[in-house]
Structure formats: C-alpha cells, structure tokens
Amino acid sequence: MSDAVNEPLDERSRYLRRLVFRAMQGGGRGHPGSALSLIEIVRVLYDDILQVRPAGFDWPQRDRCILSKGHGCLALYAILADKKFFPLEELDRFCRLDAMLGGHPELGMVPGVEASTGALGHGLSIAAGMALAAQRKGEKHRVMVILGDGELDEGSVWEAAMFAAKHRLDHLTAIVDYNKLQSYGPVEQVQGLEPLLDKWRAFGFAVEEVDGHNPAALRALFARLPLTAGKPTAILCHTVKGKGVPMAENNPNWHHKSSFKAEELAHLQSALGS
C-alpha cells in the first residue's frame, strides 16, 4: 500500500466533486458516496492514461473503459463533461425526463459510455469480450473496467475472472473501488471479501493495491500496465466512500440521496469550495 488516504484533495479533485454535486442538485438525486470514492480513479484514467477522443468518441482504436458499478456514474459524468464529451450543462438536467444523463450510464445515450451498467456483475464479462475481440484482431487498445466492492458479491464477476485468465487477456484491467461500504453497511459485515488480493491472484490475475485517492500513485501504477505479460490485472484501490465531504465519508446514508438540507449544502461548500 502506498501513501496514506488522508492527503488533502487538490483543486482538480475538488472541482470534479463540485461537478458531481452540480448534477445532483440538477437532478435532485444521485449516489454521492459511490461517486466520490471514484473521482481520483476516473480523473487519472481520463487525464493521463486512456487514449480517447471526445469528438469522434467511437474511434475504433480508443481505449475502452466500462464503469461496471454504474451507480457511480456521477463521477464518470463529471470527468466526461470536463473532457467535453458533452456540454457541462447536461449535468444540470441529470435524471430529468428528456435528459442525456440518467441515474445509470446508458450506451448510445451518453458519448463516451461503453456499456449500459447498473445491474451489477455485468461489466467484467463485457470487458473480457471486448478484450478477447481485440486480442483476436491484434489490436493494441486497453480495456479497463471499474468494479465496486459490493459488486464482487455477484458470482458472474468470478465467472468472468476465470474467463479472462484462461484467455490471458493482459490488456484487460479490473479496477476495484474498494471503499469497504456497500448499500446496507460495511462490506465485511454484509458479505466479507477478504482476503481479496489473494482471491484475484488465485483467479489468475496479476494484482496490486493502491491508495485510490492519490493521483500520483494511481498514475504510476496505471503506467506500468500490464503488470504481468499473459495475465489480466486487478487493481484494488483503497478508497473512502464519500471522500472529500467529511459528513459523507464512510456514511452509508450518503450511498444514495434525493435531497439536501441547508446545513448539508453549506457543508458541501465549505468542503469543496465553489
């Protein structure tokens, strides 16, 4: 494990979090906790790692990134909007009847979204299929898939893990947002995952863990992919659910929210600036 998780967030990280809450205020709802633990992961991927083009986003040689934990979509929408895949103003219409951006990402509706997710346990299989297609065609692009820790309860994730290892899909990377808190409560109480590193390793993955809120550490690790030739990679990102908003951190009541009280809004402003 690299650096501690309690470094102060820099302005870019706070800005992307402000975009999350801009969308939540636009839509009057959302999964803030699940998005805030993801911010640095998507920030580093889209700022430094993924080869993508906002204009002509379906460019065939692009790197693919699937947000399998679709309920974290506000983080993805924030970075895609920031990268100009669509206008920032779309955030203000989040979840409205005729909006581009819904409560879970939908393929074909949102530029830059690679698969419709929200039903958990689907993304790794789809990503593995994409990675196998690339392998068979001799294409070099990467396939990244971001999974939630609660999502790892789904048996289909482990079916897909065995498949990826069998086919030696070393340009496939599974990134786990390991924030230790699922909807009902602590992961270790609802359905424990430990020893999680050993599990992925036993399923045939090259595995590393990292502080998922440390951009430099994430950048350095992603730059080393694939970790082992002939093996898919799993990266366990140790994160904090609700990261960056003290009231929301490690608080299951911020998994999903449909309204904010005045003091919560004041708290958001003091934590994230404006």
Binding site: E114, A115, G121, H122, L124, S125, I126, A127, A128, G129, M130, A131, L132, A133, A134, K137, G155, S156, E159, A160, M162, F163, K166
Partner: peptide, 21 residues
C-alpha cells in the same frame, strides 16, 4: 467452449458483438 458459466457467456458475447463479431 467456455464452461458452465452462462451469465459470463452472454456478457462476453455482448462485448464481442460490440467489437463487430
């Protein structure tokens, strides 16, 4: 031939279909 993991088969097929198969 990918084993007794039907849910994964469907997801993999989707991923490959997205890539033109």
């Amino acid at each position: 031939m990918e084993g007794i993991a039907e849910q994964n088969l469907i997801g993999v097929a989707a991923g490959m279909a997205m890539e033109g198969y």
